[in-house]
Computed example of a mutant assay.
Amino acid sequence: MEIFHSPKELKDFLKDKNKTIGFVPTMGALHDGHISLFKKARSENEIVVASVFLNPTQFGENEDLDKYPRNDERDIRIARICEVDALFMPKPEEIYDKNEPLIKAPEKLATILEGKTRPGHFDGVLRVLNKLFNIVKPTKAYFGKKDTQQLAIVENMVRTFFMDIEIVPCDIIRESDGLAISSRNAYLSEEDKLYALKISQSLAKAGAMIKKGELSTNSIKTQMLSILEPLEIDYVAITNRRFEPLDKIELDNTFILVAANVGQTRLIDNLWV
């Protein structure tokens, strides 16, 4: 595995390879969810590129940029074990210029749910991904379904900017107890983890209700909110795949999305129906 710190180094490495490239962008603190993305990219491409870049532009003023978990040595070890060919680990000054043009996420998608709580977040996500896609020029790029709204906004950018990239959504990876794996789980105490399980339990309850024929989103949401007590809930939303609220579940066209605070840690999870 080769490690690169500047865009030029990586571009030179990839130049004239004429091979399929699978790309996994990450912010580091790699875990089993990332490993699943690396493995899928490895199985579908001749070259696998991963980035470890804690992107400052997607964090708000009062968010956790300064305390976000970092462990470069461990990340390098994991990427090497997963047979990543090129690991890109730039510093912010290698990526950003004070005079660069800015990209904005579409208002309709970027000001609801995660975007409402984290204004400007998706602008920062698209800003960095636009750059990374231009550096790597991947054939396919791999994203986890846990960040469903982000996934939709990235797909929108790729489609509307006519980028020749296939975005590959990948299933959420969970602990054996159902907790969705996240880098921010490192913040959780053992007691916090017990409370965090309420999030996946509420989604499991929703799935069970739908399997029994319950399609009323109000009924499902009421049961979910009961399970989620006493967490500080940001939102429980049941929408179609365009993120429009639903009164009744539409099979193969529904997202059930949850965001809640567990102690000082904000967690998200979802179910695709």
Rank of each mutant, 00 (worst) to 15 (best):
E2T: 11
I3N: 11
F4D: 08
I21R: 04
G22W: 01
A29F: 04
A29V: 05
L37K: 10
K40W: 01
R42S: 07
S43D: 13
E44T: 15
N45P: 03
N45V: 00
A50G: 06
F53A: 08
Q58P: 05
N62M: 14
E63I: 11
L65K: 04
K67E: 10
K67L: 07
D72P: 00
R74E: 15
D75E: 05
R77K: 15
A79N: 02
A79P: 01
D85R: 02
A86Q: 02
F88P: 02
R118W: 09
H121T: 09
G124P: 05
V125N: 00
L126E: 06
V128W: 06
L129N: 01
P138F: 05
K146P: 01
L151Y: 02
I165A: 00
I172A: 04
I172W: 11
I173V: 15
G178Q: 02
G178D: 07
A180G: 08
S183N: 07
R184P: 02
N185P: 06
I199T: 09
L203V: 10
K205S: 09
A206Q: 00
A208S: 15
M209V: 04
G213Y: 03
L215S: 09
S219M: 14
I220W: 00
I220A: 12
T222Y: 15
L225Q: 14
E229K: 13
P230A: 03
I238Q: 00
R241Q: 10
R242C: 11
R242H: 12
L246P: 03
K248S: 13
E250L: 15
L251K: 14
I256A: 09
L257V: 05
L257M: 13
A259R: 01
Q264T: 14
R266N: 07
L267C: 13
N270L: 15
